[in-house]
Design a protein around this nucleic acid. Structure first.
Lengths: 147, 147
DNA sequence: GCTAAACCTTGCCATCATGGGAAGGTCAAC
DNA sequence: GTTGACCTTCCCATGATGGCAAGGTTTAGC
């Protein structure tokens, strides 16, 4: 398979496949006489693995570790699970951070009537003045309910 | 105020203040004879505004628009609110994407017992095989409940 | 007045994952 | 043999931020 075919089949762009090769995430593929990269089923399998891991938000560094474990017949599933849980906790932190932002912005936005007048609690909030008609306690503590 | 003082007071690093000046987010400050940037209360106020907006996840491009509206006495609060809601919808999309990742990974992770043996449903899942003991329908459709 | 520390300046490079484009070589079909 | 679709390498860009280096300035202490 040429790079275009394996890119299409794996869902990883040709650009990225070359990049992954360059940073050592995947090995150097053999080349034709003309210099074209040649791929086998096994490479396609690896690229699909990478693609799935990216879809789950793993970094390339983490994927590097996952691939080592995948290739290692002696691995313990505990090692893999530990990696997954560490990533899970990272995902949870990012989700929480975004939800915190969201809730703060919702509460600012709700206090702005959005009409033709220039008075705007959103801008006032950003400028450091607490918006007048917002943040009853239960709103400011709101978490993760209605995302 | 020198850049260090205004950085400390605003919570925006000196590095970033220079950067914001360079990309035109804030104006060029006057300089001392030696070339040191000089800031006033007004600039501090602006930087705090920027900092708050960054904390809410607005991009520098969006902050540029927010600042224009902030300075514009003729603005309508509707314009501000529209910007805020557009950003809110973006935040919601990002939160949903992360939650989707998280749920998929949780379901993989739960099916892995994490012991000394090499069998690992997480790796199998990434490799494209459905993990054996996972995904009863209600789990695979799970959304946003327990973040 | 001298020295050291703490500050400031500009400029370049790095991150992370990805895409764009240019300039040029190769292959297959017609 | 030409055309179009593919491939190659190389450089640059994103967005927001940090780091470092080489050098100038200010300030405090002696």
């Amino acid at each position: 398979m040429n790079i275009g075919a394996v890119a299409k089949a794996s869902g990883v762009s040709a650009k990225m496949i070359r990049h992954y090769e360059q940073i050592g995430l995947i090995g150097h593929s053999p080349r034709t006489e003309a210099g074209y990269r040649q791929y086998q089923e096994r490479d396609l399998h690896t690229l699909k693995f990478i693609r799935s891991a990216r879809d789950l938000g793993f970094s390339l560094e983490q994927i590097h570790q996952l691939l080592s474990l995948w290739y290692d017949e002696q691995r313990s599933s505990a090692e893999v699970k530990q990696l997954a849980e560490s990533h899970l906790s990272d995902l949870d932190k990012r989700i929480q951070a975004l939800i915190t932002m969201r809730d703060a912005l919702v509460s600012l936005s709700e206090s702005c009537c959005g009409d033709n007048r220039p008075d705007c609690p959103i801008l006032e909030g950003l400028a450091g003045h607490v918006p007048a008609s917002s943040s009853p306690p239960q709103l400011s503590k709101q978490k993760a309910q209605g995302v």
